[in-house]
Every structure is written in structure tokens, then in C-alpha cells.
Design a protein around this nucleic acid. Structure first.
Lengths: 198, 198
DNA sequence: GTCTATAGGCAGATAGAC
DNA sequence: GTCTATCTGCCTATAGAC
């Protein structure tokens, strides 16, 4: 791996990751190539290989950066106190933002190609889902304490339902090119957890 | 397209579809090749091209056959009277069966690669989701009439939530190699629609 | 219908000049 | 760090013999 660029500003590696990330989110890991990235950045594929020796390494770096950025967004939500339903809404909005760029969750796309991916990428994908699940479980427990959320079973199971549900909502909404499909599915899913009389 | 085989029994085209279907469900459309299929069937790729001139045509045939088989399964559920919750459970079990073979819904996988697919395949994928949604909306309306199901909003919206939720549950469960993840998410999702006191 | 042979393209990756 | 040039392999697809 080449040395970290001196400035924190967008170095070449970072710009490569930006383009590759979008391509994977839109086309999948087996649907993009070094040539695609190189063309958009007006460099050669040989240059890309200097920064990321193999496609597998590039893939790992993509998931790692994506996960860290996502964890940062979750931390941002936690930064100021809010009721659990508002936190869930903010969480749902993180994925809605992806969809606005006709992208879906990076790890959701990769999950569909899971069997074709090298083990390090596989493990990083699972860690991403674990991260989502853990954060959600915390919010759900908060909601149960606050009596703003009500659900049967464990917070962990409910968290898994939310992760699955939103990943699927992105997956299905995209062919329709319709953000409102995602929003409606997310609202129905999260609404089913709201406490209160029917 | 070559003439239909004389017997209704598994002709060559049918066996090609069987292998290709599994490969796509496990590896994705961009993750399998004619060579993979040919190897498993002990034929050459040239032979495959006789039955399906292009990969795009093969892809269309895959979705078409999958959709028809799926529609048949739904009709089978409808064949004998049952309460709406039991029908939803049977529906969920159709997808659980895919997961038992480490597959996921064909159209769910293809949705992840949607942007890379030829237009005829795209349209067939959307039709598959429409089919699911329509059938589910009917069951949900039945449940509302029977008072066995309760949900806010339209049956159509709830149907979309279910399609999304189960597609996502398959997507996420597979990396964990854990059917129970799917089952738990599906149960939580469908359970949230059950009528009755909390 | 299935084969051999092959075309033509694109993939990921490397060597070595600058 | 980026380039030119190139390698090797796999891909989809076709021509034509059997």
C-alpha cells in the first residue's frame, strides 16, 4: 500500500474509492471494472493498480471506508438526545439518501454477490450488518424503556427485521426508480413498532 | 428458438435452465458464464448457444420460467381455503425453501444488478415484483375482512412492505448461512400484521 | 443437436520507462 | 505516481463439420 497522502484532502486513492463505490452500488462488484474507474478519472488502469494492487484489495477498502462513514453517521445521530422513533427515522433517511443517487447500500449489493467474493470482503460485509444490528438494538431498547416503541421478542430480533426490511426496500425500490416505494415500505415497517393504541 | 422437445420431460433446454437458474441465484447474473453451465452439463458452450442464442435470451427465459413456477405456487396456496395468516406463512415458506439451497429469490439477486441488465430482463423483473405484490394485496384484504390481520394504510402498501421485507431477509440471511435469521425476520414482519390485543 | 475451432473483446494484472 | 506496452485468461458468440 502506498504511503498516506500528506494532506487529508481528497487524494488519488480517495477519488478512486469515490468512483468505485458509486459503480459498485449501482452495478455490483462483478459489474464494474478497473477500466470503468480509470475512464472516469482520466487515468490508466495501471495507475489504479498502484493504489490498489488487486480488485479484491479495492473491494476491502471500499467496505472499510463505507462502514466507517456509516458508523460516523450513526454516532452523529446519537450525538444529540432524541426519542427512539426519531432515531429510527434518521436511520431510515441514511439509506433514502443512497437511493436518491440511484444507489443502494454498498453491502446490500455485495450480499447479493456474496458467494463470488473473496473471504476478506465477505467478513467485512458481515461486520457491517452486525454494526447496523447492534446500533438498532440499542435504539430499540431505548424505545422500550421510554415506551415510545413496542415490539414482541428481543430487541435484537427486531433490529434484524429492520436491517433486512430496509435493505430489501432499497433493493426492490430501485428497479421502479421510485424513492417513494422505499419511503412507504420504511414507514410501514417502522410504524409497526410505534407504541400506542391501535 | 429451437422447436419444443417432443416429450414434456426434462429436455436439454430445461436442464440448461435448471443449472443456470441455480448459478444466478447463488452467484448473480454477472457472476456466472456459459462455461460454468456447460461444465456442469458436460457439453460445450457452443451447444448452449444453440438453445439460447445469447446470455440475454437465457436471462429472459430464466425469469419467465421462474415467474410462472412462482405464480403456480401461489395458485396452489389459493387452491384450498385458508385464513390469511396461514397464506402469508405459506408464502414466506416459498422463499425459505430457496434459502435452504443457499439460493435467494432469482429476481431479488437480479434487482441488485438491475442497472447492468438488458431492458427485457428489467421489465420481467418488475413484473415479478408486481405479481408478488398483487397476490399479497389480495391476501391482506382478505385478512382485513376476516379480522385476522390488522394494518394501517392500504393493502398495497402493506404488500410492498412484505415483498421488500422478505427479499431483504433473504439477502441478509445468506451471508450468515443461517436460515433462522430469515425465519425470525419473516416471523417478526408477518407477526406485526396479526390482529388481536397486544 | 452437439461438436471443434476460433474470432474478437474485455478482464485483471505486471514490467519497466519516465 | 503515472505512463506505454504487454501478458494471460476468460468471456460471449459464430462458422461449419458431423
Amino acid at each position: 500500500m502506498p504511503g498516506t497522502p500528506k494532506t487529508a484532502a481528497a487524494g488519488t486513492a480517495s477519488r478512486i474509492l469515490d468512483v468505485a463505490e458509486r459503480l459498485v452500488q449501482v452495478r455490483g462488484f462483478n459489474g464494474f471494472s478497473y477500466a470503468h474507474v480509470a475512464r472516469e478519472l482520466n487515468v490508466t488502469t495501471a495507475s489504479l493498480h498502484y493504489h490498489f494492487a488487486s480488485k479484491a484489495e479495492l473491494g476491502e477498502a471500499l467496505i472499510e471506508r463505507y462502514s466507517e462513514r456509516f458508523a460516523g453517521s450513526l454516532a452523529e445521530i446519537d450525538r444529540r438526545p432524541a426519542a427512539a422513533p426519531a432515531k429510527l427515522e434518521a436511520y431510515s433517511e441514511l439509506y433514502a439518501d443512497e437511493l436518491r443517487g440511484r444507489r443502494m447500500c454498498l453491502c446490500g449489493v455485495l450480499a447479493a454477490e456474496y458467494e463470488t467474493l473473496p473471504p476478506p470482503m465477505r467478513e467485512a460485509i458481515v461486520r457491517f450488518f452486525d454494526l447496523n444490528e447492534e446500533w438498532l438494538a440499542g435504539v430499540l431498547e431505548q424505545g422500550r424503556r421510554e415506551r415510545t416503541l413496542a415490539f414482541a421478542g428481543s430487541a435484537r430480533t427486531a433490529a434484524r427485521m429492520i436491517v433486512s426490511g430496509l435493505e430489501g426496500a432499497m433493493l426492490v425500490a430501485r428497479p421502479y426508480g421510485d424513492l417513494s416505494r422505499y419511503k412507504a415500505a420504511a414507514a410501514a415497517l417502522l410504524g409497526s413498532l410505534a407504541d400506542g393504541p391501535r
